[in-house]
C-alpha cells in the first residue's frame, strides 16, 4: 500500500508522518502519533468524541482523510492545558462534575473550545447548538452546558491552550 508523507502542526509542534491511502485522521493521530486524547466512538461521524480542531474549526477526525491535514494547524485535547495549568474549559468541567465515564469528554471539550474561540460569550442556546453533534450517555448534558458557560464567564478561555 502506498504511503504518503504529511506535515502539519499538532498542538503547536511540527509533525511529519507517513500515512496510508485512505487512512483517517483519528487513526493517524492515535496509532501513528500516539495522541490518544481523541477517542474512537462510532467511526461514522455520529457520536462526536473524535472531534479535533483543524485551523480552529471542529472536525470529526474519523471522517477526515489524514492526508488532507498537510500544512494545517491541529489541536486536540492534549494541547489544551499549558504545562500543569488546565485550560479554563478543563477546570470548569472538573469543578462542575461535567464528566462521568469520560468517553465523550475530549469531543465535548474540542467542540466547546471551537465555540468559545469564535464566540467568547455564548448564550445557553449557542452552547447547546455547539455540542449538538456530540453524544453523552451519562451526564444528561446539563452539567456540560453549565461548565461551558462557566468557562466562558471566567473569561480566560482564550488566553491559553
Amino acid at each position: 500500500m502506498a504511503k504518503k508523507p504529511v506535515r502539519f502542526h499538532l498542538n503547536g509542534s511540527e509533525k511529519a508522518v507517513f500515512v496510508e491511502d485512505g487512512q483517517n485522521l483519528l487513526d493517524m493521530l492515535r496509532r501513528g502519533i500516539g495522541d490518544l486524547t481523541p477517542k474512537y466512538g462510532c467511526g461514522q461521524g455520529t457520536c462526536g468524541t473524535c472531534t479535533v480542531l483543524i485551523d480552529g474549526e471542529p472536525h470529526l477526525s474519523c471522517l477526515t482523510l489524514a492526508e488532507t491535514v498537510e500544512g494545517r494547524q491541529l489541536t486536540t485535547t492534549a494541547g489544551l492545558a499549558s504545562g500543569n495549568r488546565l485550560h479554563a474549559l478543563q477546570a470548569a468541567f472538573m469543578e462542575g462534575f461535567a464528566a462521568q465515564c469520560g468517553y465523550c469528554t475530549p469531543g465535548m471539550l474540542m467542540a466547546a473550545k471551537a465555540l468559545l474561540d469564535r464566540n467568547p460569550n455564548p448564550s445557553r442556546q449557542e452552547v447547546v447548538e455547539a455540542i449538538s453533534g456530540n453524544i453523552c450517555r451519562c451526564t444528561g448534558y446539563e452539567p456540560i452546558i453549565n461548565a461551558i458557560l462557566e468557562a466562558a464567564k471566567s473569561g480566560d478561555a482564550r488566553h491559553y491552550g
Binding site: 461514522q44 455520529t46 455540542i131 449538538s132 453524544i135 453523552c136 444528561g140 448534558y141
Partner: peptide, 17 residues
C-alpha cells in the same frame, strides 16, 4: 443500526430538573 437511527434526547431536549 447506528447512532443515526438510534434516538436519544440531545442537549436541546433536556428539561430543568
Amino acid at each position: 443500526l447506528d447512532f443515526n437511527e438510534y434516538l436519544m434526547p440531545g442537549p436541546g431536549d433536556i428539561a430543568p430538573h
